[in-house]
């Protein structure tokens, strides 16, 4: 969902960061509006289902508090996704400790959400979600970043802490599993 902020729609992320560091709070709002929903999708692909708003908010707060450590050799979105992933892993570790070592089921990532906006039939959506759920967590992560966010492999590699080539392999394996599942019926 776009969240337009007057005078900031055409600015690049780097320009908005500079504006925010200069004291313009609207720039921070514009950055949140630009990246919040993709972060929510990414969090969902990682298996997060609860308190997504809180997770996205924490991601931005942590990012804005450590902007000096942001390196311009990657995109802001990639950096945000990296922070978000660390927060998700922290959450999972905390929950795992709370459950006394009971492993989380990471096999069902993108399920349980409604509002398909009438774009896709419910049955088709269920089948696609089931197909994606068959992927390994890493395959699902790479597939989501590639397909829903349009990320290049080198940026995906930074988020998942792997190599470009490995990410490419994960993507094509994921694609093959999904196609096979969907063509079974």
């Amino acid at each position: 969902m776009a969240y337009p902020v007057p005078g900031t729609s055409d600015a690049t992320d780097a320009e908005l960061i500079a504006q925010w560091q200069g004291g313009d709070q609207r720039a921070a709002t514009a950055l949140v509006g630009r990246h919040a929903q993709p972060l929510a999708r990414f969090a969902a692909s990682l298996g997060e289902r609860d308190r997504i708003d809180e997770l996205v908010q924490d991601t931005f707060v942590r990012a804005f508090n450590s902007l000096e450590s942001f390196r311009a050799d990657s995109s802001l979105r990639t950096w945000l996704f990296t922070i978000c992933k660390r927060l998700v892993l922290d959450r999972k570790r905390t929950e795992r400790r709370r459950r006394d070592g009971v492993e989380l089921d990471e096999g069902h990532a993108v399920v349980g959400y409604d509002a398909l906006d009438g774009l896709v039939a419910e049955e088709t959506a269920k089948r696609v979600n089931d197909a994606v759920a068959r992927l390994t967590p890493l395959q699902r992560e790479v597939f989501t970043l590639r397909v829903t966010e349009g990320m290049p492999y080198n940026e995906i590699a930074k988020v998942v802490e792997s190599t470009d080539g490995a990410c490419r392999v994960h993507y094509h394996n994921a694609m093959r599993i999904i196609k096979e599942y969907l063509s079974d019926d």
Binding site: M1, A36, Q37, L39, A40, R41, A43, A44, S45, R49, I52, D53, V56, V110, V111, Y113, A115, L116, D117, L119, V120, T124, A125, V128, N129, A131, V132, F143, T144, V147, T148, I178
Partner: peptide
């Protein structure tokens, strides 16, 4: 199709 489903299925913040 996958892109539409994944985007639509993701939680709204």
């Amino acid at each position: 199709t996958s892109r539409l489903v994944l985007r639509a299925s993701a939680p709204r913040v």
